[in-house]
Design a protein around this nucleic acid. Structure first.
Lengths: 246, 246
DNA sequence: ATAAAACACGACCAAGTGGTCAGGTTTTTG
DNA sequence: CAAAAACCTGACCACTTGGTCGTGTTTTAT
């Protein structure tokens, strides 16, 4: 549950359309120096309190719209409507739609390197894997929007985050895979290819976030907390049994 | 592997933007009568051979672009470029982008009701589930585009196919769930909630199609046929063990 | 208090979009 | 072979979109 790798991945904008792209958006809250016309002479440090607050509100609204409509399907106006600010104002904080999108993705990536415990290799596989599955399931439950944005990005080939996640992602995965591999070598679980186990966990847990509309369609309503909890149990137990861990 | 339900679901276009929408696109190949100006007096039956051929080519190209760029991200011009036909020509066959999209989705849905064998309930759970998983895995392998289009649709709340799949999907699912339920009742497998098993299978198998770019990123290349085959084995074995079926 | 920086926003624009249409050419039909 | 249907396509248009700009207002620092 605790972090393993500190991932300082920061997505830098890629010029995507024909328009001029000058500098990067201010993600998380750390505002950067900007020079347009002859406005600020000295680089400011953190942006006013107003900026802080508005950037947060905009980010939240943007995530909502991006999640439900996709990048292209999202108009800056739609975000503006949601935060109840004029469009020009949101472009004042984030110089471009692309910048806003990368800012949202940066926020998401920060939560993405959740991995195995640092001492995972010394612990019982069943415990580590159980915790990992539960963490992923809860993420799907509490942050479906972020999950959807991420999924859509990947499905479309990760045009925006590719460079930012490429190395870190490979690192995280290799690390997790090697832990699993070690367990196998120690005879603690049946011989499997670690990658396919990770895929199964990712695919299954993401499903609950990304396909919630399908689930709702099928059940006639969304999963209750109890049902979701049962689903968690099912996934954990099935995977552990599947690995001959229980 | 064989069909269980004959699903005559046909997506009917929903007016989506402000423009006038007259009639539905000609999917699969069955062309419909159309009346614009004073052209065709008698309803034609199947469309000329030229039409047949061009519709197929367009459909194929459209699927490619839709899969990689999403609905909104796809311009009719992009499809036109891919088939090397002028834009106006593709709009001649499919009256609208939305029509083309629904045509593509109709094609996809035709393959979607793959389910358990009709006599599944009398067969061994392990066999039926193994076959089902393999079928889904193979679909992911051979038709990743379709899988991606479908996934993106669902993630965004299925705005287009909702009405078309709502009932059938609920039906298919209920049917499969009841078979599983029966197995449980017969003590043939451990007591589980069927839905969560289906979700696990869907999520895992879809992952291989939708997240292939991530897989490629991690491995440095795409999965080879051998590796994919190992993945199939892993999924089958893990699920079957997970259900206490082997 | 006052200057400077930060914030707010209506009006505007260039580019790209889906879709139409008129008039042509080719194919099919009788 | 001629008429009708089917096919083809460049030109065009209405509309949406991301993004800019000028100017006005509020906040902050000195």
């Amino acid at each position: 549950m605790t972090q393993t790798t500190a991932a300082p991945n920061q997505i830098t904008e890629t010029t995507e359309s024909a328009s001029a792209q000058q500098n990067t958006a201010n993600a998380g809250g750390k505002a950067k120096g900007k020079r347009r016309g002859a406005k600020p002479v000295v680089a400011k440090q953190l942006g006013g309190a107003i900026r802080q607050r508005n950037e947060e509100r905009i980010l939240r609204a943007a995530a909502e719209v991006f999640a439900s409509a996709g990048y292209k399907g999202t108009s800056v106006q739609a975000i503006a409507d949601k935060v109840e600010l004029p469009k020009a104002n949101i472009l004042y904080y984030f110089k471009s739609k692309a910048g806003l999108y990368t800012a949202v993705l940066n926020d998401i990536l920060e939560m993405w390197n959740q991995g195995f415990d640092e001492r995972a290799i010394e612990r019982e596989p069943a415990d580590v894997i159980r915790e990992y599955i539960l963490a992923k399931m809860r993420y799907s439950r509490t942050r479906p929007q972020e999950s959807k944005i991420f999924a859509t990005e990947i499905i479309h080939g990760a045009p925006v985050i590719r460079d930012a996640i490429d190395l870190p992602m490979v690192g995280w995965t290799k690390q997790k895979a090697s832990v699993i591999q070690a367990w196998v070598a120690q005879g603690k679980m049946r011989a499997i290819e670690p990658l396919y186990l990770l895929f199964m966990i990712w695919g299954t847990t993401q499903f609950y976030a990304d396909f919630d509309s399908e689930i709702t369609m099928i059940k006639g309503r969304a999963l209750s907390d109890e049902e979701f909890s049962k689903a968690e149990d099912f996934v954990v137990e099935t995977v552990l049994r599947g690995l001959a861990l229980i």
